[in-house]
């Protein structure tokens, strides 16, 4: 094939290929159309903002999870770390009397620290990340309860601002978009981000090519902790308080969002845009089922089926493409 025809081929937009590579997006669009037909309440400004707010927590957690999964690991602790970070921030503000903005930064630092510990345990302690973060899931939740004595703590005004509004737009949506851009930039443009794909794709080849694999793993988990902390603060800001049981089980939503978005748990594959769509799919389904008055019990069943379907279709698609 000549260079000219190749060029032409690249320029013309290949619809079929686009659809095949963005199955989750297609699913999301179909879902939205179906809900639009099924209920008039779906496509209202208020409901869409509501969806935006709900997706912000899940998506920010899932962005952090994307780094980990791309690098070939898993992080089960993000829900607990989110709660711990918010609680630490509240404690800094209420009990330690720090200025509100410092309390906010303190919360982020707590998440970063928890993540770095996960990374150290995984890279240098040689614990499988599943185990290291399972331990952190328990430790972080336990510390949250210890600090709070099981009761909610009021958040600083700066944290509450994260849950408030910027003009007509809810702040969580603004933060979400910024987080998406930052995460995408980190993953796509930076040395560390590109290295994550190499580490997840083949850690030994990455090491023998001179990539600092262990340092990258620490950074990856540190980022996951930091994004978890941000999600925890968003959640606390909305409620004006850090709750000891906040974000319980959210790690599973985050993993689901990443996987629906097309990442492979084997590592080396995944995109922030995919994760974003994955998080939207989860939240829109829940929202739609609420609008249709489906009980939360059945919602869990539906979500489970969707995860299995999304990943099953993806596996099939890859199999047919590779053969």
């Amino acid at each position: 094939m000549s260079a000219a025809t190749l060029q032409a081929k690249r320029r013309s937009f290949d619809v079929k290929k686009f659809l095949a590579n963005n199955g989750a997006l297609v699913g999301l669009v179909v879902l939205c159309i179906a809900l639009f037909i099924a209920t008039p309440d779906f496509l209202t400004g208020r409901n869409l903002l509501n969806i935006g707010i709900q997706v912000s927590t899940v998506a920010v957690l899932a962005f952090g999870m994307t780094f980990v999964i791309v690098a070939g690991g898993i992080d089960l602790s993000v829900g607990s770390v989110a709660a711990l970070s918010a609680m630490v921030s509240g404690w800094f503000f209420v009990s330690a009397g720090l200025p509100g903005w410092l309390a906010l930064l303190g919360g982020l630092a707590a998440g970063l620290l928890a993540g770095v510990i996960n990374g150290l345990a995984s890279a240098y302690g040689k614990l499988p990340s599943f185990i290291a973060t399972l331990a952190m899931l328990s430790i972080a939740r336990g510390l949250t309860l210890v600090i709070s004595d099981g009761r909610p703590i009021k958040t600083s005004p700066e944290v509450s601002f994260l849950g408030g509004n910027l003009g007509p737009v809810p702040m969580p949506i603004v933060i979400l978009l910024i987080a998406a851009l930052v995460a995408s930039f980190l993953l796509n443009r930076t040395v560390v981000g590109r290295s994550m794909y190499a580490v997840g794709g083949n850690a030994e080849a990455a090491r023998l090519s001179g990539l600092p694999v262990k340092r990258i793993i620490v950074i990856v988990f540190g980022l996951a902790g930091l994004f978890a902390a941000l999600a925890g603060l968003l959640l606390a800001g909305r409620l004006d308080s850090a709750q000891p049981q906040a974000a319980t089980g959210y790690e599973l939503d985050a993993i689901a969002a990443v996987v629906i978005g097309g990442a492979s748990l084997a590592g080396g594959l995944g995109r922030i845009s995919g994760t974003f769509v994955g998080a939207l799919v989860l939240v829109v389904i829940r929202n739609g089922l609420n609008l249709l008055n489906v009980t939360s019990f059945w919602q869990q069943v539906v979500i489970g089926v969707v995860i299995a379907l999304a990943v099953g279709i993806d596996v099939l698609r890859r199999k047919t493409r590779s053969s």
Partner: peptide
Amino acid sequence: KGQGLVLDASVNE
């Protein structure tokens, strides 16, 4: 395959 290359990544990478 096991030590030299990240097989899913591009030639360029």
